[in-house]
Design a protein around this nucleic acid. Structure first.
Lengths: 334, 334
DNA sequence: TGCAACATCCTGAATCGTAGTCATATGCAT
DNA sequence: ATGCATATGACTACGATTCAGGATGTTGCA
């Protein structure tokens, strides 16, 4: 690999001059610049980023820590984040944790090691303390990690309430919601509390199905859907994330239930998946691109040392109403 | 940030000793090691990766260049690649090109700049020459980039033939396949040639619909599906990638055609999306995880200087047969 | 005209933080 | 005293940037 030294020697100038030409700063005579430029071309020289990074103490890389990038929600989030980061001049590193704490710890180290300038984390496994002791730029998606770390989330309570209301309006009497681990302290769990509560207020039976997570594999969701179909196969309302919702629909259909005549369903997230079923699936949509933008902006501000005043930013969910919550014909027998 | 110097001073030893403790090499007395260790703990020291990288002339980062990571195919590919890379001790950088040549050029520069140790490219826009002049570790997915750059792809011809045969066996008489730009020299275009040819051999009318790519957005696919439904809405067989297939199904259903009674369809790729429709969608499945593994292994070999003898690796497609190619009842009137 | 003041142009050396080479210094056995 | 294993620190390379400062050229003003 050719270095700036080689270029300097080849152009019969000092390294500082080459550097000035490269960075277009300071005084350089026109013909000297030309000499340097042609030396650069001749030697096919490209400045070494590692050396630059060492000097400037920045890498221009941001790590996105997520359970796994193949999950539609995180794929779309990562995608949007990459765009935003690219615009700001940053590269994106992806870090799948598979919900393993030690992976998360490992990735958190990247920041201490100065391998990345900042981290956007979308996982919820590690203890808060570990995040807090890394006193460097971090932004959290859907998780409160103490006072120092800004976090971004949608109004999940509203999302849960909307979902509940949609099923109630459709005339559901016995419903089920699919949840992740309820103990995990993430704002996104709020929707399940609200959902349950609203159902209770309307005296509607509300079952919970705890979805164990083993990675984003079809078989896991298919198994879960099968279990639900077995144990809760004749309810009239369901509330689940996109992935679970679409899998559930096909499983219930395979069991002979007509979609969306026999059962109503509301999906949550609004990824591409939620647009696939026909008739259209009613979905509570998270503004994934916006979430990513906000995360990136917050992070870049922190990296650049700007004081981040707002520690918590909440965005709105929207409703994409389809035919999966069309009311049951009135007067139907239970 | 604390440096190795600080640790050395704090422990009253030389930097070399600290380095030896860190890297567990050379002779260090047990109590000296302890002194150093406790200094490291006290100062909360972590070695700076940038400096290490500069010294060792490697970053331990691999770039994956793809059109965009939100597309299910690339999301699943990237996911699998990240796992494989992590196992080999590498970090993954994602680079969305949006099919813009200048982005691709920019990302290719990362390699010259020594910001990454290697590149896996899954895009097809840039001229081959630009790749060839970067004489560093590159592996291509689904594209032949000259003799020096190994490439990995599935047997698309077989895939195209299988798809054609499935529709023929189902009794289709007039079919349509959705293609990308046919001029682009990617092995994956081979399936369309074969598909067309097989159809011709069976005297079946085969239409082509050229899908213009503007990014992985629902609206684009929805628009395309709408156009197909308008102009080719009453054919009896379709062949398209997962994304297009599922969108097409819902659009044709919305037009009143019964799936899969009125028309047959074969999907290509085998991402999660292809598992969503009910009744099940017949799909030509690419072994995406395997493709990623092979790409990663080839790349790491190249990075580590091992001679890569096999310049081209072809994997097999498999058939996941669903009900979307169940034969039309015999004797139906055209 | 003389020369201070300033702008222009360029170089060498120091710097960023780590790793490894080399030289040196112990202790212990022969 | 010699040899060897053990133990340690000063120094320098990695490649780019930047600072201090030297060498010009140019202007302003007595």
């Amino acid at each position: 690999m050719t270095t700036i030294q080689d270029v300097a020697k080849h152009a019969h100038v000092g390294v500082a001059t080459v550097s000035r030409v490269l960075n277009e700063c300071g005084y350089v005579k026109a013909d000297t610049r030309e000499k340097v430029m042609s030396a650069i071309r001749e030697l096919n020289y490209t400045p070494n980023e590692m050396a630059r990074n060492l000097y400037h103490k920045k890498t221009g890389i941001v790590a996105i820590i997520i359970p796994e990038v193949s999950h539609p929600y995180f794929a779309e989030f990562t995608n949007a984040a990459e765009i935003a980061l690219f615009r700001k001049g940053y590269q994106t590193m992806i870090c799948n944790t598979w919900r393993e704490q030690n992976y998360e710890t490992y990735y958190l180290e990247l920041l201490k090691k100065q391998r990345v300038d900042g981290i956007i984390t979308g996982v919820h496994t590690l203890d808060i303390e570990q995040y807090q002791e890394v006193n460097r730029p971090i932004v959290a998606l859907d998780r409160q990690l103490g006072d120092q770390i800004p976090f971004v989330a949608v109004d999940h309570e509203k999302g849960g309430r909307m979902a509940a209301q949609l099923l109630i309006n459709a005339g559901c009497k016995t419903v089920l919601q699919c949840t992740g681990h309820r103990k995990v302290s993430t704002p996104s769990n709020a929707r399940h509390e609200v959902f349950e509560q609203v159902m209770k207020e309307h005296s509607i039976v509300c079952h919970n199905y705890l979805l164990k997570w083993n990675g984003f594999q079809y078989s896991d969701y298919a198994d879960a859907a099968l279990k639900i179909a077995e144990n809760f196969g004749n309810l009239d309302g369901y509330f689940a994330t996109d992935v679970m919702a679409v899998t559930l629909i096909q499983t219930l259909e395979a069991k002979g239930r007509k979609y969306p005549e026999d059962f109503k369903i509301v999906a949550y997230d609004g990824t591409y998946l939620s647009r696939v079923p026909y008739p259209k699936l009613t979905t509570i949509v998270q503004p994934i691109d916006q979430l990513a933008d906000v995360c990136v902006n917050l992070l870049i501000d922190r990296i650049q040392g700007k004081p981040v005043e707002k520690k918590c930013i909440q965005l709105e969910v929207t409703l994409r109403e389809g035919d999966s919550t069309k009311p049951f014909p009135s007067g139907r027998g239970k």
